[in-house]
């Protein structure tokens, strides 16, 4: 009875404190640092280099937000999170924004009470098989053994796909991607399945990548994006429009090379509004006028970040595909800065 009372009191305290500290922006400014949740290690998306500096596609977004809010792209504390701790860390305000290749799903958005602020990478689940297996489509995989990470959406997608196509498979459960690579190379399974970006990164590390094919079928939608807590829409706006600013900058041709020149004033009113020389978009967000300029200068626009971290010039070698601008046949389409 007493214990119940204490727990109840704590909950009330937690809720009142939660209500009191709803303004994440003020907290971040007071702290002088953005706390950003990232993956403990995912090739191309987030990994520490030899000096302990976090690099990658997701980490670059964290730097952009820090630059937009605090004017300093290095004012970020990276909090490495596992799949098991990521949501509680965000809910318990241990991180201000979670940029950890998280799939936007209905239940995460609604039931877990998070706010996905957009999609920074459209992924999907694919299959990889050795070339000498002789398959050219996932539908020919009847009776195959499949290496699959347990406890993820990929496991459920796999079951759905095989049932829908009325073929059978034998799962080989694995825990981590590293284990998956080793098992697959040792021949413990015929096929390895995970997100297509992960497959490409994995294949790039093989001694002979050309001996393996990634099958054409993409069997699920995995829109990965950053997310924030429910209950602070102003902070959500900042996170959303920072991402949009990076994408819009690519669309408008604003790069880290020409941004100083364009920030002095240009003929395109949308660029001027984005970079703060016209209008008061920054003020509406509660930020400085040059917020988007800082965000873009942190690591370049969306296309530059993509090319530097996971693009075709990197060992991972991902094509833009769906993640190209809408004008180039992709589905990146940001609302106007107006």
């Amino acid at each position: 009875m007493k214990k119940t009372f204490i727990l109840g009191a704590l909950t009330v305290a937690a809720m009142s404190a939660g209500a009191a500290s709803a303004a994440t922006l003020d907290d971040v400014k007071a702290r002088g640092k953005l706390e950003c949740g990232v993956n403990t290690g995912l090739v191309g998306f987030a990994a520490p280099d030899a000096n302990g500096r976090w690099e990658g596609f997701d980490a670059a977004y964290c730097r952009a937000v820090a630059a937009a809010v605090l004017g300093d792209p290095d004012a970020v504390e990276f909090v490495p999170l596992t799949t098991k701790t990521r949501f509680t860390a965000l809910a318990a305000a241990e991180v201000d924004v979670l940029s950890r290749n998280t799939t936007w799903t209905f239940s995460r958005d609604v039931d877990l009470k998070f706010e996905f602020v957009g999609v920074n990478y459209y992924d999907g689940q694919g299959f990889m098989a050795p070339k000498n297996l002789g398959v050219s489509s996932a539908k020919e995989l009847d009776g195959a053994t499949v290496c699959i990470q347990t406890g993820t959406t990929t496991e459920l997608n796999l079951a759905d796909f095989f049932r829908a196509n009325n073929i059978s498979y034998e799962p080989v459960p694995i825990e981590t991607n590293a284990e998956g690579q080793t098992q697959y190379l040792a021949g413990a399974c015929d096929v390895y399945t995970t997100d297509a970006s992960g497959l490409a990164a994995t294949r790039a590390t093989f001694e002979d990548p050309s001996a393996h094919v990634i099958l054409p079928e993409i069997i699920s939608k995995e829109p990965l994006g950053p997310l924030v807590r429910h209950g602070d829409p102003e902070w959500g706006d900042i996170a959303r429009w920072t991402l949009n600013a990076l994408i819009a900058a690519e669309e408008l041709g604003v790069t880290s090379a020409n941004i100083e020149e364009l920030a002095a004033g240009s003929d395109n009113p949308e660029i001027n509004r984005l970079l703060g020389t016209e209008g008061n978009l920054g003020e509406m967000l509660g930020l400085e006028a040059d917020w988007a300029k800082n965000a873009i200068m942190a690591g370049g626009n969306y296309g530059e970040i993509f090319a530097k971290t996971i693009g075709e010039s990197t060992p991972i070698g991902l094509a833009r595909g769906l993640n190209a601008q809408w004008k180039d046949g992709g589905i990146l389409y940001v609302p106007p800065f107006r």
Partner: peptide, 13 residues
């Protein structure tokens, strides 16, 4: 695990 996520060292176990 984090080190393995570096493109230089991915695949080292």
């Amino acid at each position: 695990n984090s080190i393995r996520a570096d493109t230089n060292w991915n695949g080292i176990v």
